[in-house]
Structure formats: structure tokens, C-alpha cells
Amino acid sequence: MEFFWISIAGLCTVAILSFLYSDNPLYKVAEHFFVGIAAGYVVCAEFYNVFLPNLWRPLTSGSDYWLIIPLILGIALFTRFSDELGWISRWPMSVIIGTYSGLAVIGFASGDMVLQVQASLIPVFEPATISTFSSEPSVLNFLQIFRNPLFTLGLICVLFYFFFSVEHKGGLRHIATTGTTLLMIGFGAGYGYTVMTRIALLFDRFYFLFVEWLKIAA
């Protein structure tokens, strides 16, 4: 029975990959299967993992009557489908937006912004890197000497690129151009990591097809 379900998954994988050759009915069938099953799965998962344990069971068992408020707010969200009562849905939306805005501001300010700014304020030059290179000469230790100066220079150049109160011309243009160049290198590295992720996904599918399903590779 297990082989049957693995075969279904294998056939669906082949059907989806067949789109790379050209659009075809097999791909469409697999695509519709995926959308339908994913939607159904999410609805069931949310119902059993969120609605029942977080709201319905505590409410019906009488352990927490305050949950009547989120229940009413939740039901109010469905008034969006009515032209006349649609305005009621703004109330629960305002609660959701307000709660998450508050959470986001606190999280970003205390956990991200302050600590990142603090971590950026490093000594421009670290004498310890020279002594490390003297005791253990290597390319990596040599490059470490330039780590802090490059970091500081890069930080200033990139920040300056986003500083629009002064026109970027003359000598200032070079600072902004250096900032742009560093940003491009950053975006390039980011894109490279994205490609890595996609190749890993492709390998995983081939592993599933050739090792777990067809068992023709070790």
C-alpha cells in the first residue's frame, strides 16, 4: 500500500516536471490536485489545530468564557460577504491590525534595530587581528585585518546612498557609487543563495524519484 502512495507522489512529481517541456494536460491535472489538496489540508489543519483547541473546547468546557469575544470577532469577519453588514468586519480587522502592529513595533525596535545598530558600531581597526596574523600567518588571517575597516567603509557608503538631502555629485558621487556597488554585490550573493535553494529542491525531487520510488540509485 505504501508503494502505491509513493507511486502516486512520483507520478505527480513527473507530471509537474513535465511542464518544463511544455504545458500539457498531465501538468494541469497535477496542478489542480495540488491546489485542491493544499487548500483542503490547510482548512482541516487550522480547524483541528486552532479552532478546536484554542477556542471551541475551552469555551464549551466552561474553562474560559472570555473567549466569547474572539468568537464574536471571528464571526464578524464573515460579514464582509454582505453589502449591508460589511462594515462590521472592520472591527475585527482593526483588532488584528492593531495587535500585530504593536507586536511588530516592539519586536523590531528592541530585538532588531537597536541591537543591529549597536553591533554596527565596532572599532574601525582592531589591533588584535595583526597579532593573530603575526602568530598564525594565513590568507584568512590576513583578510581579517581588513574586516572592520571594510565593514565600516561599506556601512557609510551604503547609508550615504540612501541619503538624498545632498546631491550625489563630485566626490560624493563616488561614495554613493561605492554604496550602490556594495548593494549589488549583496543582491548578487542573495540571488546566489536563492539559486542554491532551488537546486537543493531539484535534487530532493530526483532523490525521491530515483532512490525512494524507483530504487534505481543508491
Binding site: G111, Q116, Q118, Y193, M196
Partner: peptide
């Protein structure tokens, strides 16, 4: 954002490659 700075618990992370540029800053800091 919500746990390590507020509750002072050390944290290790494993992430997909696509998130690395963002999370590297957290490792450096």
C-alpha cells in the same frame, strides 16, 4: 525579535539558503 533579546535565551538557527543574507547579520551581531 521577540525571544532572544527579551527572555535572554541563547539561540542557534538553521535556515534555508535564501534567508542567509538576512540571518547572517544576526550571527555577526
Amino acid at each position: 525579535q521577540y525571544v532572544t533579546s527579551r527572555f535572554a535565551i541563547p539561540m542557534l538557527s538553521g535556515s534555508s539558503a535564501v534567508s542567509v543574507p538576512e540571518y547572517s547579520a544576526y550571527f555577526q551581531s
